[in-house]
């Protein structure tokens, strides 16, 4: 039997083809990852549903935005730069003040029994004429208030920021600072449509 030479396939043009495809994908690619503020909407209110029981005033942190993008926080005008600290004080109630939310002792894993403002709710209401950027900025500040509080307690307890904790530890921190931002049913108050 004669040994046949195996012909080598010329693969030199493979690189060219691959380069061509590569350049095509380089051109069409958009590397922007989608980022944003994630929220849960409340389920729709049914007509025959009973209205929820009223929440005591000290447990509600009321934020209103009008059509001129001005803030009214707990009936006081406020600049956006102060909102974060005001929200933090409300959520945490560090001095146990009477007009800030009531605390309850709650058993939390890793922490033991700690006082938690269980019923605190941030209520956000805006006008139809409010600018979207302003609305998002307010949402952002409220989110930042929660993030900062969670980070502080995580560093104190675990010496790590919140996002580096394990999921169990994160759940415990979330139990101490549950994020409750409620958006009121839309109302048209004041100003243009």
């Amino acid at each position: 039997m004669a040994k046949r030479d195996i012909q080598e396939v010329n693969a030199g043009s493979m690189a060219d083809i691959a380069f061509l495809l590569l350049i095509f994908f380089l051109m069409t690619t958009t590397m922007d990852t989608d980022t944003g503020l994630t929220r849960m909407l409340p389920p729709p209110v049914l007509d025959d549903q009973e209205p929820p029981p009223p929440i005591r005033e000290r447990n509600v942190f009321e934020v209103l935005i009008n059509a001129q993008n001005q803030l009214l926080v707990e009936r006081q005008p406020m600049a956006l730069s102060q909102l974060r600290d005001a929200a933090k004080e409300f959520i945490e109630n560090p001095l146990n003040l009477d007009h800030l939310p009531a605390k309850e002792m709650v058993d939390v894993p890793f922490f033991g029994t700690v006082p938690v403002t269980t019923n605190a709710v941030i209520s956000l209401q805006n006008d139809r004429g409010t600018q979207y950027q302003m609305y998002l900025a307010v949402q952002n500040e409220l989110q930042a208030a929660y993030t900062e509080l969670r980070d502080e307690i995580s560093r104190r307890q675990f010496n790590r920021p919140y996002r580096d904790l394990t999921s169990d530890e994160q759940a415990a921190v979330r139990q101490i600072y549950p994020q409750r931002i409620s958006e009121a049913e839309p109302r048209n108050f004041g100003g243009r449509n």
């Binding site: 139809r128 409010t130 600018q131 449509n193």
Partner: peptide, 23 residues
């Protein structure tokens, strides 16, 4: 203006699409 966003949010609630993301 937030009016149109509010309309969208109300429609999404009716459609039971409750997880939203403000890009």
């Amino acid at each position: 203006p937030m009016g149109i966003i509010t309309d969208i949010k109300q429609a999404l609630r009716r459609a039971q699409a409750l997880r939203i993301n403000y890009s």
